[in-house]
Nucleic acid binder design. Structure first.
Lengths: 231, 231
DNA sequence: CGATTACTTGAATAGTTTCAAATCCGGTGG
DNA sequence: CCACCGGATTTGAAACTATTCAAGTAATCG
């Protein structure tokens, strides 16, 4: 598949890179279209590549020993993902599934040290990314430790609106198919509880639901709820 | 305070480093004794230093907006900590408190890039450390999402036994003062629930409690419980 | 000792999950 | 184009886990 250089160039990660260097980087990359529902890589597979999401949306999931699934994070366009090797792992700790039709760039893991050497900025970016992820993880732990389900769901929906929201008449549309089950797996609860919460919100005018659809109609209200101002 | 070179040299992080390089590193370091209950740094302070724990034990805590506290992690001897700057942060995201009398090495954050340049191994180690931490965080999220409190507490105690356990007649002693409240803050529950659980375990012969004391008397049994084999 | 902090434990309560069943929606194939 | 099927969603009721509230009991430190 042909790589769209303009798209890559527009990403913050690469915007200060010289054209030559960018070309060199891209010359090693392959592009891949991932249909909805298909996995880019699966938990436990050897980490032979690392990736950059160009279009679409991925869910990174983990399955526990006893078969329960959680969503570790959502990958948005422009995010690096699957760089297990940079963290000294040999296999992928989770499964990355396309929530919507997606396009990824893909490099062999072996090239990581090479890239980092030629592009210190990339190393810094990677560090930053990991640091952010660690913080996000801690935030989530904090929320799960101290907040009740409704506020956790509110925070999750707000994050989605911020990272995957598209303005639309009447509110902010979460721009990829997301089910109640997904939200449950992101917040550590059950789809039943999520459904009840969204129903309650709908009657309060905060959101509008739908099959794998979510429209935030009152961001302010939700934010207040998430921060404990309302109940 | 005088730095004990032998102690530093015995750490995996430095064991392949040349004596000259180690001396150079240590020449920039200052050593500091931290009495029990005192903080090495506090949440929100500018990150002017990074640290290595030589002796003792630290709890890293975060306080939520509404004043609730959680324990993000426990720092064990040999661990690097407080390298916020490496993650592109300018302040410390948490507070590090000495759970027992501790000794730390301390470097100015500015030297981090310099060190990393001269010691690629240190950079790799740091990456590895962060990667491990991210995994630990995800493990914790997974546990909090899918497991009930008793199993979470079992896992937490097992981790403590592994990382801070000292063999002793009759079992494995958690080698620093730890309260029910601490365990509650590590597992996202209340001290009451932890107390009840430990009491139940004590009558089943898994542990022996005490004021800020914990002795694991049946590691096997606890492990089974943690993995869902018993109830 | 006296005060303080840590711990234990019972009872009531609240928040969530589990179980069960009905309903809705979207696409597929006739 | 429409009936039908399967996955997604909703919702009620029961069960349960863990928290909150409320005392009361130890252990430690000055």
């Amino acid at each position: 598949m042909k790589i769209d250089r303009a798209v890559v160039k527009s990403l913050p990660l690469f915007d200060r890179m010289s054209d030559e260097e960018l070309d060199r980087l891209l010359s090693y990359a392959t592009s891949r279209r991932v249909p909805q529902g298909e996995a880019v890589f699966e938990q436990g597979q050897p980490a032979i590549s690392f990736f950059l999401l160009l279009h679409g949306r991925l869910k990174v999931t983990q399955v526990t020993e006893d078969g329960q699934q959680i969503i570790v994070r959502v990958v948005h366009p422009g995010d690096l993902f699957g760089f297990a090797k940079a963290l000294q792992r040999t296999d992928y700790p989770g499964t990355a599934i396309a929530a919507a039709e997606s396009v990824t760039l893909c490099w062999p893991t072996d090239l990581w040290p090479n890239f980092v050497e030629h592009n210190p900025r990339l190393a810094v970016s990677a560090m930053q990314t990991i640091g952010q992820r660690l913080e996000e993880a801690h935030t989530r732990i904090r929320e799960m430790s101290t907040q009740e389900v409704e506020r956790r769901v509110a925070h999750a929906v707000l994050r989605l609106a911020r990272k995957a929201g598209r303005k639309e008449a009447g509110g902010i549309r979460i721009d990829f198919p997301i089910s109640r089950q997904d939200i449950a797996e992101m917040t550590g609860t059950t789809l039943h509880t999520v459904s009840r919460i969204l129903s309650a919100w709908e009657s309060r005018g905060f959101v509008e639901g739908g099959r794998q659809k979510l429209l935030v109609t009152d961001l302010e209200g939700l934010a207040e709820l998430a921060h404990g101002a309302r109940d």
